[in-house]
Amino acid sequence: MSTRKKTILKVIILGDSGVGKTSLMQQFINGKFSQQYKATIGADFLPKDLVIDDKQVTMQIWDTAGQERFQSLGVAFYRGSDCCVLVYDVTNTKSFENLQSWRDEFLIQANIKDPDNFPFVVIGNKIDVEENKRLVSSKKAQTVCASLGNLPYFETSAKEAVNVEQAFDVVARNALQQEESLEFSDDYTDAVNIHVDGDAYGSCGC
């Protein structure tokens, strides 16, 4: 293995079933879109290399299943994320209303220590649809995002590749900031002093 590591960013995508999480990710990583709907089972993992302000990063994107029956895996998936992307479908009011519960669920399950500063990015997907099918207005979405703590908000079309790059650029930046926030103070010196006079150690060997 090479030794100079790129920073790894764990990014998790949450949202109701069918809002286009997998399509967004496919568009972002492969520049492709498929009309066919295929439910994600558990989670999919795709890596994407980016350069952000001269810094090489690898995004490890966790595309989770929106379906209820996979929710028990939440704890496992959410743990250790650097950014959480909340996706809804602009033609589906319910998926928009559920954003807050996805966010709350994430904060609880992921055991986030500083919830006010954890980076979320909200994406309203499927803006390629005809105007009359759109049920959640930009204005309404922006208001809600502001009330949830000024979350960055993007409207995208995974199908027509609108705004996807831009949204994920902000995801990556905010994730990187989060990853680097608590720069670890390396402290070897406070390793436990070993008292060799005790006899607490087992014996074995020669």
Binding site: M1, S2, K5, K6, I8, G42, A43, F45, L46, P47, D49, T58, Q60, W62, S72, L73, G74, V75, A76, F77
Partner: peptide, 20 residues
């Protein structure tokens, strides 16, 4: 690294599937 990044996620999921 790219291969490892993908497989780390898969391994974690398999392990978690039994753990949770």
């Amino acid at each position: 690294d790219e291969i490892l990044t993908v497989h780390a996620g898969i391994i974690q999921t398999i392990v978690s599937f039994f753990e949770f």
